[in-house]
Design a binder for these strands. Structure first.
Lengths: 109, 109
DNA sequence: TATACCTGCAACCAGGAGGTTGCAGATGGC
DNA sequence: GCCATCTGCAACCTCCTGGTTGCAGGTATA
């Protein structure tokens, strides 16, 4: 099971992406660039504190990063972890393709 | 925000993948092919009921499917949703690349 | 300096997630 | 028929999550 090593530590990233509010935050940071908490809260329907918590969850998964700029805190995306999550899905898909190949080889022999 | 349509309904899939036990189940079903609950429980450290619940969560996200075969229930992977999740990550990454391009264009002018 | 704004911290709450146990119902093999 | 095995259902428990509110502390600006 060499594939398990590829999946190691990927679950937290998926868990971070597994919330619609957070997914929207990621998408917004991705398309709109870095933004302050107040600006990120403006487009949402929940409280600023809720947005703050979601941002911290995303930061815990390594997906975003923040820096204080003046009196506001600016959050920006960190796409490396995103790439890693995509690679994990690729790994699973590759496993699947191999399984299909094995099945086909088994049927055809 | 045309990207939101691409991300619509993707969060449940990520949430389903955001648990290590479930991720291992997906990986196992992917590499080992369909298996019964008892067989899936054998390699795990939690109860059969816990595995059953996790399988139902995965089924709710459209990632797996089950069928009764004799006295046992056989679960198998359904890779279409997995592909869709990968495409969602691709969409976000594409957004990111476009944002980088815009930034570069802005800097260079 | 006074004021408006942005943020951080803490307490609190309802609901869901993950997990277990116990028991009952089917199903296959002897 | 009898027994072992596999599953399904229900109750229950603990802990985390998403969310809110209130208040205090910095920071820009008139």
């Amino acid at each position: 099971m060499a594939s398990n090593t590829a999946l190691k530590g990927t679950a937290p990233v998926f868990a971070a992406l597994g919330d619609e509010t957070r997914l929207r935050l990621v998408s917004r940071l991705c398309s709109g660039g870095p933004a302050s908490i107040a600006r990120l809260t403006a487009g949402s329907s929940v409280t600023r504190q809720a947005i703050t918590k979601h941002l911290h969850v995303l930061a815990g998964a390594g997906l975003v990063r923040s820096a204080r700029r003046g009196r506001e805190r600016v959050w920006e995306l960190r796409p490396r972890q995103l790439e890693q999550a995509r690679e994990s899905l690729d790994a699973i898909s590759r496993q699947w393709d191999e399984a299909l190949d094995r099945l086909k080889a088994f049927v055809e022999r």
